[in-house]
Nucleic acid binder design. Sequence first.
DNA 1: AAACGCACCAACCGCCGAACT
DNA 2: TAGTTCGGCGGTTGGTGCGTT
Length: 531
Amino acid sequence: MSQNAKVKVDNGGLLRDLIDSDLVGKGRGGESTDEAVLKKGPWTSTEDAILVDYVKKHGEGNWNAVQKNSGLSRCGKSCRLRWANHLRPNLKKGAFSIEEESLIFELQAKMGNKWARMAALLPGRTDNEIKNYWNTRIKRRLRAGLPLHPVEGCMQAVAGEDQQNPSFHEINTANMGFLPSSGYHSPDVVFEGLNAGQGFLSCISEHDEVSTGSLQMNCLEPTQFGSRMPCMINYQRGSISQYSSFSGKSEDLFSFLNPCEDDRDEKIIGSFGHSFSFDQDPADKNLLPTFHVQGSHSFSNGNSSTSRRTALKLELPSFQASEAELNSMWIASASNQTLLESVDPLIQSLPRSPKVESEYLSPQNNGLLEVLVYEATQSSTKNQSHDKGSNSFSQTAGDTGGSSLDFCETQLDEYRDPISPLGQSETSIFNDYRVSASGGSHGDQPHADTFPVHSAVLGLKEDGLNQFELREREQETPTESIYTWPDALLASSDWFGQRYGPFTGETPISDSMAFLVGYDLTGDYKRTAEA
DNA sequence: AAACGCACCAACCGCCGAACT
DNA sequence: TAGTTCGGCGGTTGGTGCGTT
């Protein structure tokens, strides 16, 4: 039986068009052959109809049989791809929703380019779709000189991965979307002479001897933000110079922090993949340096002394950032009352709902999510509506029941597993926020200046915000905490404040974020800018 | 109006692992 | 156990439409 005849049997009338066309059974010379040259190129509606019809009859799978049984001059792979990406039911067409985009960021930061796995967590989306989206986004961001991931997202994700994989550099470059080395080399020393008020180190308490404004970032070049792990440094109250003894080793791995003016010759040395903390002995006031392997999440917050203390956790970018961008990042945090110190206590007070962490609080979302919000608000609201609970971040953690992404929770659990590095990566940012038991009586009180920003990024529910704000306004004394810098601050200082201009009530970002969290950010941003 | 660049998307290609013989 | 087949995955390419110059 000729191939065309077989086709007629399986597909009936559908075949007539196909037979008349040049799709089936024609070789290069146009003559029909039993060994037809498989067609390439775009699929026609006729071919689609044939494939759909075939799958309806025979089900998915055994794709190589499609060509034999249906007469489609397409290879099995092509059939499978066409079915999976375009013809199968329940495919979701159209632009990605903000919810989906944020999930893609999170998943990409965790998984790398595991598009198929991501697609499994995004109902109706295909791996090809996600891949295209990401690649397009990468191009756009690279051209704009923007990081592919929010800082913390990279850090946390890679930090977790690094615990398992001995070569986190590979993970970084492979999974985190770093710039190619041709454009930005990845030096061992990736963070040097950070300038306070310019970027990633804005989490220093105002009442510490090392104020935010006393830090100097001497060198901020894109090349210095190579594909490396973030540098995390915890220090306690006291001059940084006290810790200069730590600078002796592995300088090639260490980055340097020059605490400016009065401490210019003194450095905090941190290494990527590791962290130092300086635990103060309450008895002799000596600082007891401790070394923590990053990923252990055993920063000094866990066993902090009761003495008055301030801690800095420096989380350096593991990806490229333009100087201008970095500069802008610092601006918002240049004041004594930094964004970071303000919002960090908030994190400590965040509800620890896994759902919240997953859907809203994921470090991987921070930063880019704001951009997404911005872009979304700029382009259209086609994917969002205020009362569209299933697709809105304004919903609370407990309100996500209708979300199409709910089912992802189960599969995402593997990434939350506290044993899993992924799980750690997701939760560590929160675990690291601890308030000193003594000292300020209100150590758990967040600063009102910026926590709404943080909350916005983190997706806190409105009533929580108001509670925080009320408490904050009742107690204005500075907090004593181990400050960790969430990437949300990047978002607030850079993505919001600079890239899109100072926050005003009219900015699309503030509006959109207010929309997302049901909170008016205007006043908070104004305060921050004025600080 | 034409040329150009860019974004987006669909599809292909090569590799790999699992299943099967 | 080795070879083959098949399906899946990720990287890449090519086509198309749109905006800009």
